[in-house]
């Protein structure tokens, strides 16, 4: 569903953010991309969503090249950012309706919108509340609702659990489980090794733009993922 081939990105200032990275994410798979700040995780996301152009290589979603046919590719993907920012003067329902309509979901009833927000754990009083009164966690939940209401086959999440309290994070992981069951291909970048271990089918470890390790769930299920991660970091440094 999400395919990355020899993806390379060198910025104008010469920094090599991605260095020939390749991987594929299948439907019903959760792929967690781990790595320190500046490892190239967000750059990958930016290329997939056509925010920036790659220097080399190819990224595609559902077979559509993200650079050549970005609008076509984006039809099949939703996005949850690290810090979901929405229109502060709009209510949660107005925000959800707007982005749902952008995603092609027209004429949704308030009931459908409210159900979508309830499903991600937003409290009842928040549904008609203006976003400027939302906490970061609530915004994040609404961001997830926005991503889910589009019902795409692939979801890209950039540090989605950042800023979520443990209870919300747990609810979020439950939500991800359901999405996996529905056959969604999920790319999640994160620093959170603990939650990656809990949910990921595969993890990729990135350092300085390179994918330095890839582990299947079977390889880290009973091992210490943090140790693997640290080993990879140190090995590379050595």
């Amino acid at each position: 569903m999400i395919e990355i081939k020899e993806l390379t990105k060198r910025y104008e200032d010469g920094v090599l953010a991605l260095d020939h990275v390749s991987y594929t994410i299948q439907p019903g798979e959760i792929f967690c991309l781990l790595g320190a700040n500046g490892a190239g995780k967000t750059t990958t996301v930016n290329i997939l969503l056509d925010f920036i152009q790659p220097t080399e290589g190819q990224a595609s979603i559902n077979g559509h090249d993200c650079t050549k046919f970005p609008l076509e590719a984006k039809k099949y993907v939703s996005y949850v950012s690290e810090n979901v920012q929405l229109y502060g003067m709009f209510t949660a329902r107005q925000n959800l309706r707007f982005f749902a309509e952008l995603g092609g979901k027209k004429k949704l009833t308030n009931q459908i919108l409210d159900d979508a927000m309830r499903s991600v754990g937003l409290p009842e009083k928040a549904l008609t509340m203006r976003l400027k009164h939302f906490s970061k966690g609530m915004r994040q939940k609404l961001g997830i609702a926005i991503a889910l209401i589009k019902d795409p086959p692939a979801i890209i999440m950039d540090e989605p659990t950042s800023g979520l309290d443990p209870k919300s994070a747990k609810e979020f992981l439950d939500q991800l489980d359901k999405l996996r069951e529905q056959g969604k291909a999920i790319l999640m970048t994160t620093h959170d090794i603990f939650r990656a271990k809990m949910i990921a089918d595969r993890v990729g470890i990135m350092k300085q733009g390179r994918l330095v390790a890839m582990r299947e769930r079977a390889n880290f299920k009973h091992a210490d993922l943090e140790e693997i991660y640290m080993q990879e970091m140190q090995a590379d440094s050595a």
Binding site: F51, L71, V77, S81, Q85, F99, L102, G103, G104
Partner: peptide, 14 residues
């Protein structure tokens, strides 16, 4: 600056 543009562009909007 508000961060909403990123989410909008992530949708299928020319």
């Amino acid at each position: 600056e508000r961060g909403t543009l990123r989410l909008m562009i992530a949708h299928t909007v020319p």
